[in-house]
Computed example of a mutant assay.
Amino acid sequence: MKILKSIFFVSFILLNLFACTTDEEPLFQDKYTAEDLVKLHGGDFKQWELQAFYTNCNQKQLSEKNTCFVDDFFVFQKDSNEINVTSGEGGCDNVAPEDEITTASYEFYEEEGLVFISISKASSVNGVIKNIFFSLQLVELSTNQMIFASGEKGDYRIALVFVTS
């Protein structure tokens, strides 16, 4: 019985740690305003850490690239819409982080109230350039968590879950 309780407790902790949403405050909005974006860039710039990179957020399936993305830090800037990326210790495709270039930016379409992030990670492996590129829509935003994803509300597929303190 103690083992079953321990397994349940650990499962509960892990589920909450890697959840795509929280119960703290409703995050989903159909449209975002310039005032909402202060949560994203902090009025000037704000650092975010990628908590999870899902290929299927609802099924909690982490991407095979999760490890090489989650140790990167992303600084969202207000005026340039650029995101400065500081690579972590792990590179993708068995490449040293210093041999990898990650670029990112976000676009705000004020009239539609939509925000998109675009990320590119490139490296050279045995003389072959490998590039990962994707663009995702902002679907959830609070002061300490945001999610960019593909799919419908409650049915997110590819998703990036960012957190900040």
Rank of each mutant, 00 (worst) to 15 (best):
G91V: 04
Q59R: 12
A34G: 11
I13Y: 12
I117R: 03
F9T: 03
S11F: 08
Q77K: 15
T67K: 15
V10F: 08
T103W: 09
Q61K: 12
F73R: 12
E112D: 15
D23P: 02
E107I: 10
E64D: 15
F116M: 13
T67Q: 12
Y54S: 03
N131M: 11
N94M: 11
F18Q: 00
F74V: 07
L141C: 04
A96E: 14
F8Q: 05
I117D: 05
E152C: 00
V115D: 07
L160D: 01
L136K: 10
C68G: 02
V139W: 00
Q137N: 12
D93N: 13
L37K: 07
V115A: 04
V85E: 05
L37A: 09
G88Y: 06
S105D: 15
T67H: 05
D99W: 05
T164Y: 03
L17K: 06
V38T: 15
E112F: 08
I3P: 00
F8V: 08
S150D: 15
E110V: 04
K65V: 00
T164Q: 01
T102N: 04
L160V: 03
E24Y: 09
E49A: 12
I117N: 04
E110G: 11
F28M: 00
S11Q: 02
V163S: 11
Q137D: 14
L27K: 06
R157Y: 01
C20R: 03
G113P: 12
A96C: 02
I129A: 12
T102V: 15
S150C: 02
G91W: 09
V125E: 08
L40Y: 01
F73L: 10
L15F: 14
N126G: 00
E112R: 14
C20W: 08
F18N: 01
E112A: 15
N16C: 14
G127Y: 04
T103S: 15
K130H: 12
A149K: 03
F18D: 00
C92A: 09
S120H: 01
T21P: 00
I147L: 07
S63A: 12
M146R: 07
S150W: 00
